[in-house]
Write a protein that binds this DNA or RNA. Structure first.
Length: 321
DNA sequence: GCTCGCGTCTCGATTACATCA
DNA sequence: TTTGATGTAATCGAGACGCGA
């Protein structure tokens, strides 16, 4: 199967699927006889479960990326056909020997140039890279999985384009199957491991933000309930005071004031005839506070439980085959 | 059918590094 | 220029699951 699949193909079949993750969908598709035997949604001609779908977020980033014939992109080892991965024109992971930046033109962090647009002029970028003082930051071994452990870990910053690309992909699905990982890595000229790590960290950040949102929500709930409790206590105190001060009530048969904890209603129980009368003095209306989900990045799968969206290795194998 | 070892995945926690004020 | 804070890429170890023997 052709590895050089475009991200658009991925997104076109992955959006809005009623599964918590790609893996869930993939697992479902594995058991689907309409699978067409390829085991990966990219092969399904943009249809899923028989319905044609259009992705709201197309991952065809390529037209937005600088098309610069002098970028040296053709020399990239990614093996993609001419110019289809122009992002690599300013990719930090370029092998120095494949770019014309040897010796003095050492690549540093791409973000040091404050790339503000996909229309970045690559020549400017190169000039900025030339100014970098952190010449040793280039990871020559990046393009080679075999050399992962050759050097001490050097941390690179993904370019804004790469981050944006990954972000868009994450919006579509917060987990990746091997095919998608490969495709993304190839598209961005990163190692699959880097893509995988990025998604891991992105999920962690999403969860952290969601936790903060939830925490804030619970805090507001607590405040509201405290205030409500205070109000009810005062109300109860008033009622008791009213009961003891007014002689009219003294002549009535003995009653007890009870409050239902569930419906928050105060009930008077007449001991003589054993009938209950519900007063409408309580039952305050509590303003419901709705939890605020964390923006768009909230994962469809909220990973409170461990590994609850994991695909079977079989699915991975099938997808990879 | 059950068990064990292996491979693979994800996660949380942490480290290490880059960047900025 | 130095330094502390912050963001994030990368690593580590653990747990869960599927598969084959």
């Amino acid at each position: 199967m052709e590895l050089g699949l475009s991200l658009g193909e991925i997104s076109s079949c992955s959006s809005r699927a009623p599964f918590s993750s790609i893996r869930d969908r993939e697992r479902s598709m594995m058991s689907n006889n309409n699978n067409k035997g390829l085991g990966f949604c990219m092969s399904l001609n943009n249809s899923f479960n028989g319905e044609e779908r259009s992705s709201p977020v197309q991952l065809h980033l390529l037209p937005l990326l600088p098309e610069n014939g002098n970028s040296g992109g053709e020399a990239c080892s990614s093996g993609q056909q001419g110019g289809s991965v122009s992002v690599r024109g300013f990719d930090v992971n370029l092998l120095p020997e494949t770019e014309e930046l040897l010796d003095t033109d050492v690549v540093s962090s791409p973000n040091s140039t404050t790339v503000s647009s996909f229309q970045l002029d690559f020549s400017i970028h190169r000039a900025n890279k030339r100014d970098s003082e952190t010449a040793g930051l280039i990871d020559i071994e990046r393009a080679s999985d075999e050399d992962d452990n050759a050097l001490a870990r050097k941390k690179l910053r993904l370019s804004k384009e790469q981050s944006a690309f990954l972000e868009e992909s994450f919006k579509e699905h917060n987990t990746l199957n091997p095919k998608q990982k490969q495709a993304l890595a190839k598209q961005l000229n990163l190692r699959p491991r880097q893509v995988e790590v990025w998604f891991q960290n992105r999920r962690a950040r999403t969860k952290l933000k969601q936790t903060e949102v939830d925490c804030e929500y619970l805090k507001r709930c607590c405040e509201t309930l405290t205030e409500e409790n205070r109000r009810l206590q005062k109300e109860l105190q008033d009622l008791r005071a009213l009961k003891t001060t007014q002689p009219f009530y003294m002549q009535l048969p003995a009653t007890t004031l009870t409050m239902c904890p569930s419906c928050e209603r105060t009930t008077t129980t007449n001991n003589t005839n054993n009938t209950n009368t519900t007063l409408s003095v309580s039952a305050p209306t509590v303003n419901p506070i709705k939890p605020v989900p964390y923006s768009h990045t909230r994962p469809k799968f909220y990973p409170f439980s461990h590994n609850n969206n994991r695909a079977s290795p079989q699915a991975h194998k099938s997808a990879a085959s």
